[in-house]
Design a protein around this nucleic acid. Sequence first.
DNA 1: GTCAATACTTTGTCTATACATAGTTACGTA
DNA 2: TACGTAACTATGTATAGACAAAGTATTGAC
Lengths: 244, 244
Amino acid sequence: MEDTPVAFDVALDRTSPVPLYHQLALAIEHAIETGVLKPGDRLENEVALTARLGLARPTARQAIQELVNRGMLVRKRGVGTQVVQPHVRREARLTSLFDDLAAEGRVPGTELLSLDGCSADEVPEPPGLPPRLTRIRRLRSADGVRLAILTNYLPEHYTVDGAALERTGLYSLLRAQGASFRIAHQSIGARLMTAEEATLLGEEHPAACVTVRRSVYDDTGAFVETGTHVYRASQYTVRTSLVV
Amino acid sequence: MEDTPVAFDVALDRTSPVPLYHQLALAIEHAIETGVLKPGDRLENEVALTARLGLARPTARQAIQELVNRGMLVRKRGVGTQVVQPHVRREARLTSLFDDLAAEGRVPGTELLSLDGCSADEVPEPPGLPPRLTRIRRLRSADGVRLAILTNYLPEHYTVDGAALERTGLYSLLRAQGASFRIAHQSIGARLMTAEEATLLGEEHPAACVTVRRSVYDDTGAFVETGTHVYRASQYTVRTSLVV
DNA sequence: GTCAATACTTTGTCTATACATAGTTACGTA
DNA sequence: TACGTAACTATGTATAGACAAAGTATTGAC
C-alpha cells in the first residue's frame, strides 16, 4: 500500500509546566479525536517527526508510548506507527456511579439509608482492614428511577457528611480529603433479590440483581474503601475494558 | 524514618536477546515475590542502582516504569521508589474461562451444543462485524458441575474444529491460528434464567444468571471475537482489576 | 523553642547519539 | 517466473550527561 504518513499540527510551549512529551501526546490525541488522524493512518516516522518539531527522539517516543499504552496507537518495528480503530478506545478511570450517571446526562439521586460505624469482622471480604469502619448505606436512583443499594465501608479517619452525600458522589468527597485511588479489585456476580431489596428498589419478586464488591487502594497500596453494591439487573450493566 | 534502601541481587546477561531493562524488571519482580523486597521497602535510588549494575539511568528507569505501570512499585520525587502492598498485584490478562478453571486446578469440561454459521444481523452488539460469522454454542462445566452456556461469534476465516473445542479453550485455538488479543470490552449484567437455560444448567426456576457480553479486538483494532455468555450466578463471579 | 530559609536527596524531563533488529521492497540470478 | 539476497525503512535498545523540581532534613535567626 502506498499510504503516506499523515502530518498533524502541534503547538509546543516550552515555557509551559506541562512536559513536552505530554503536550505532544495531547496533540496526537486531539488529532485523532478531530479526525485529522483517522484509524489506520500512519504517523510520520519518529525521526521525521522529531526533526519537524525540534524534539529529541526519546521525547517523542515517550509521547507515542503514552498513547500506545492507552490503546490508541500501535507500533510495529520496520513498519511504523498507526492509529487503531476507534472502538477500542479505553476508559480506564475509576469512577463513581454518581459521576457516570451525571456524565450520561442523567440526574442522579441519593437517599441516605443509614450512616454508622461497624467493626471489621462485619465486613467479609478484603483481609487486613482497620478494626473500626464507617458504614454508609445509600439508595441511588437515576432520573427518579431507583437503581441500586450501595453499602460502603471506609476507615474512620475520613469525615463523612450525610448531607453532602446526598448532593455528590462518595468518591469526590474522599478525593477532597486527599484520598487517591490507584487500584481497584471488583468481583461481579448475581443472585435473586431478597424481599427487602426488592421492596426498596421497587421490583416484583422474583427479580435478579447484579452484585458488585469493590475494594479500592491508593498509591501506596493502602486501603481506601470497600463496598458491596446491589443493582437492579433490569436497569444496569457493568462495563469494563481490558488492554493487554 | 531511618529506612535504608534495600539492595537485591541482579544477574544481567548482555548477550541475552532479552532487553536489559526487562531483565532488571524481572529481577526486581523476583525480589519482591521472594520477599527480598518487602512491601514498604525503599529501592536504591536510581543513580546508585545504575552505578552498581553498570547501566545507564534511562535503562533502569524503563525497568522501574514497567513495574510502576503494573502497580508493583510507587515512585515519589524527592523520596524514592517503594514496593507497594502485595494485595494490589494486578492480573491484566485476557483469559478464557477454560484456562482460568485449569489454573485453579479444576477440571474443565465442554459439551458442544452447536456449531454453525450465521449472519451478522443475528448478533446484536458490536457494530461493524463481517457479514457472515461462525457461531459456537458450548456448555461448560467444572469438576462435573455445569457452569455456563457460552455463545461465541467469530469471522469465518478461522477454522474451528469441534473435537478440539471439547479438549481446549477457544482462545488457544485462535491463538494457534495467529490471532492476537489486545483489547476487550465487557458488559456484565444479570437477569433471570429462561426455562431452557435453567434446564441446561440444572437450576431450579426461578434462578439468576450472570450475563457477559465480550468483544475482543487485536493489535490493530480489528475484530477477533464476540460472545454472549450465561453463567450460573450460584457458581460464578467475574473478577476484574483496574489500575489508574 | 519556633519557624523560615537553605542545602540535600531523589525522581522528572530533555537532549544527542549509536547501533540492533524486524518488516518490506527491490533486485538480480538461476 | 521463482526465489534468495540485499538494500532500505522504521522502531527497539542502550549510553552519557545536564538541568529542573518536589520532598525532606538541616541550619540559623529571632
